[in-house]
Each structure stands twice: as structure tokens, then as C-alpha cells.
């Protein structure tokens, strides 16, 4: 038997953690625990990103998603988790219905995921046979953040369009999307601050 493939090992570790904690989020009734499980799940997803070679996105997931968004969410949970709202029971009928719908959705998705032949073929395996290098070295072939950054402002280093040299710069990137997201973010932050500002509703009686 050949050596353990560490990529697979860590994939299994993070994948199980991500899936398991995601399931725990669904099954748990306590909102605070749900928040905790969600953090663990998203952390594991960040690990999967690292495994898939997306180091920058993985770090971003940790920093913005887990470190920022989730803090906000946990904050919200803490502000509202009082008495009856900590654990809210869902009626059994909804559970059954949701399980049926969710289960069928899962079956469908899994079927798609494993039935496309191209997706099942493992490039790493073939390459590993060809080269002497162990497969994990492949991980260093990751995307440099500077390429990502260039792509964001419109310079694609990976896919220059050979047919239209004039459009090589500025046309194939994500500048517009970047701008939209930025403005969106700004609007959202102002809006959130406006919505969540202190309001005194009614008198004290």
C-alpha cells in the first residue's frame, strides 16, 4: 500500500469538520451553540480553501468571514439571546417537510457531483505518477495574491485574450464588479449603522 496522501488526509479532516459542524448548526436548538458550530464550520471551510490552493481566499475567509462577519453575528446573538429566544423549538411537521426537501436536494446535488466523469478524474494522481515529487508539492502552485489584485483592477495575467490584443488590459478583469462591490459595501455599512442606531421606542411604562 502506498503512503498516506496528506492532501487527502487533511481534506478528510477539514471536510468532516465542515460538514459535521454544518449539520450541528442545523440540529442544534440553542442559538449560541449554533453560532459556535458555524464558526467552526467556516473555519474548516477556510482550511479547505487552503488545501485547494486558494491561500489568499482562505486567509480572507478567516479574516473577513470568520473574524469579521461571524463576530458581528455572534454579537447579534448575544444581544438577542435572552430567555425564551435562546432555544426555539421547531414544529415536527416542519422538520419532516424540511428533511424531505433537503434530502432530495442533497441527493440531487451529490448525484451531479459524482456523476460528471471529468470531475472525478484526478489530475493529481496522474501527475504524481509522472513525477517523482509527492503530490503535496503541488500545493505551492498557488495563486499569487498580486495576480488576484491585478485581475481585480482589470489586468488578467492568466487569460489574456489572444484574439483581441487591444482588450488585453482593462476589459477582461473585474474592475466594474470591484467598484460595485465597494460602493455596495459602503452603502450597506451606512445603512446598517442607520438601522441599528439607538432608538428609544415609547416611554418607560
Amino acid at each position: 500500500m502506498e503512503a498516506i496522501n496528506w492532501h487527502s488526509f487533511f481534506f478528510l479532516l477539514f471536510g468532516l469538520a465542515a460538514g459535521g459542524f454544518a449539520l450541528a448548526v442545523v440540529l442544534s436548538g440553542n442559538i449560541v451553540r449554533m453560532g459556535f458550530y458555524l464558526i467552526m464550520s467556516l473555519g474548516a471551510v477556510a482550511g479547505l480553501f487552503f488545501l485547494a490552493g486558494a491561500e489568499f481566499v482562505g486567509a480572507m475567509q478567516l479574516m473577513i468571514y470568520v473574524g469579521g462577519t461571524m463576530v458581528l453575528l455572534v454579537f447579534g446573538v448575544m444581544l438577542t439571546a435572552r430567555g425564551p429566544f435562546v432555544s426555539m423549538k421547531t414544529p415536527g411537521g416542519q422538520w419532516v417537510l424540511a428533511t424531505i426537501v433537503g434530502g432530495s436536494l442533497l441527493v440531487m446535488l451529490l448525484h451531479t457531483a459524482v456523476s460528471v466523469d471529468d470531475w472525478r478524474v484526478k489530475a493529481v494522481a496522474e501527475k504524481a505518477e509522472l513525477s517523482e515529487e509527492p503530490p503535496e508539492v503541488e500545493l505551492s502552485e498557488t495563486t499569487n495574491p498580486d495576480r488576484l489584485g491585478m485581475a481585480l483592477v482589470g489586468v488578467r495575467s492568466d487569460q489574456p485574450d489572444p484574439r483581441q490584443p487591444a482588450e488585453e488590459f482593462g476589459m477582461s478583469g473585474y474592475l466594474l464588479a470591484f467598484e460595485i462591490v465597494s460602493v455596495h459595501l459602503l452603502v450597506v455599512l451606512i445603512g446598517a449603522a442607520y438601522l441599528a442606531r439607538t432608538k428609544r421606542v415609547g416611554s418607560r411604562d
Binding site: I4, S8, F11, V45, V114
Partner: peptide, 21 residues
Amino acid sequence: LLTEPVGLSHYLVVGAILFVC
């Protein structure tokens, strides 16, 4: 699963589980 390299499908399976959850 431990000795074979994982492929795209494996990631998709995890993604599907997360999505359905």
C-alpha cells in the same frame, strides 16, 4: 480515501452538504 488523492467531486460533495445544511 486516505491514500488516493482527492478530486473535484470530493470538494463538491462537501460543498453540497454545506449548501443543503
